[in-house]
């Protein structure tokens, strides 16, 4: 595929279930050869958008192209260009891992010998070679996920859709999935990946679309997004609960905005502008205030915090403050209060 071309294009996609729109004017452009993350909470419309792009669902409005083919009018061409790893592993439970891969290879029109060879390569790569003969029923969740991924890579498709590929995996398996995705991207595959983890998008994606209620509400590189939502956060856990106010006061001097206090875990968390200088400043300020810290940790914002910041809706509805869009900070404070 031409590296400057667009691998996935969606314009104003709409999909209705009953009287609710699961997708409501969804736009997306993924340049060929890149990894694009779709980040969103439960029910945001991630699976629905992947469903339309992979020809499983028909849109009620808008249009979409994958690998240069219209998903509605050229479904066969689209199917020949994509791999899909659904949110839940979709493999044959009775067949062995190897039999599954050979079957998918045959259905991708590889010759019997080529299908077997490809199956063995994939099993080897996903560390499934010694369990390749076992029925899927006896696989662990992580092994099943890896086989699922292998099945979608039978042909090294030009465009690969991954719907929450690492949800429920242990860190090692998660790392392996990421590794496999990267190696596929190295060969020129374009990846559209949905996830609830900012870290996953951070690890893999060149660009991210944040999606909520069926619409893209923010877009950019992971770094751009993170700076938009206020950069990293620092968590300080104090030894004694009565030191919380003193610690909060100390943090407020060094941090970008007012810290949030959680009494139950004796934790104070605040937004920082510059990672390294903030850490030194906080240690000094705590020292000066005579606060004994049990733990100090810099971390990336969580998806929750991204959402609170970008939409304010999750909590705005919960707290009844009615804030919509605009200042996420207000919503965050409402939560902390």
């Amino acid at each position: 595929m031409d590296p400057t071309s667009t691998a996935v294009l969606a314009e104003g996609l709409r999909k209705r279930y009953g009287d609710r729109y699961a997708l409501d004017g969804f736009d997306l452009r993924v340049p060929a050869g890149t990894v694009h993350g779709l980040l969103g909470p439960n029910g945001a419309g991630k699976t629905t958008s992947v469903g339309i792009l992979s020809t499983l669902l028909k849109a009620d409005g808008g249009r979409a192209e994958v690998a240069g083919h219209d998903v509605a009018r050229q479904a066969a061409e689209v199917r020949a260009s994509i791999g899909l790893v659904g949110q839940y592993a979709a493999v044959d439970e009775v067949l062995s891992g190897r039999q599954n891969l050979v079957m998918f290879g045959r259905l991708h029109h590889l010759s019997p010998a080529a299908a077997r060879r490809r199956a063995d390569e994939l099993l080897e790569h996903f560390r499934l070679a010694d369990t390749g003969k076992k029925p899927l029923k006896e696989y662990s969740g992580g092994m099943r996920r890896r086989l699922d991924l292998a099945a979608s890579m039978v042909l090294a498709p030009p465009v690969l859709f991954l719907d929450e590929p690492t949800t429920g995996l242990d860190p090692r398996s998660r790392g392996e999935v990421w590794e496999a995705v990267r190696s596929l991207v190295d060969t020129g595959t374009t990846v559209l990946l949905t996830t609830q983890y900012l870290e996953e998008a951070d690890q893999l994606a060149d660009a991210v679309s944040v999606i909520d209620s069926g619409k893209v509400i923010a877009e950019g590189t992971p770094d751009e997004l993170k700076s938009r939502i206020g950069g990293d956060r620092i968590d300080v856990v104090v030894r004694r609960a009565d030191q919380l106010p003193a610690a909060a006061a100390a943090l407020e001097q060094v941090c970008a905005d007012r810290p949030d206090t959680d009494h139950d875990t004796r934790r104070i968390s605040a937004r920082v502008k510059d990672r390294t200088s903030a850490l030194a400043g906080i240690v000094r300020a705590l020292d000066a205030a005579g606060v004994a810290a049990e733990d100090i940790a810099l971390r990336r914002p969580t998806l929750d915090e991204v959402f609170l910041h970008l939409t304010g809706t999750a909590t705005a509805t919960a707290t009844g403050s009615g804030a919509s869009g605009g200042t996420g900070d207000g919503a965050r404070e409402a939560v902390a209060a």
Binding site: E77, E121, L155, S183, L184
Partner: peptide, 19 residues
């Protein structure tokens, strides 16, 4: 290089067949 990443000549062999 990993095994999953097909060598360039393999990529053609692994191209899907459209009837």
């Amino acid at each position: 290089m990993s095994i999953t990443a097909p060598r360039p000549m393999d990529r053609a062999a692994l191209a899907p067949v459209i009837a």
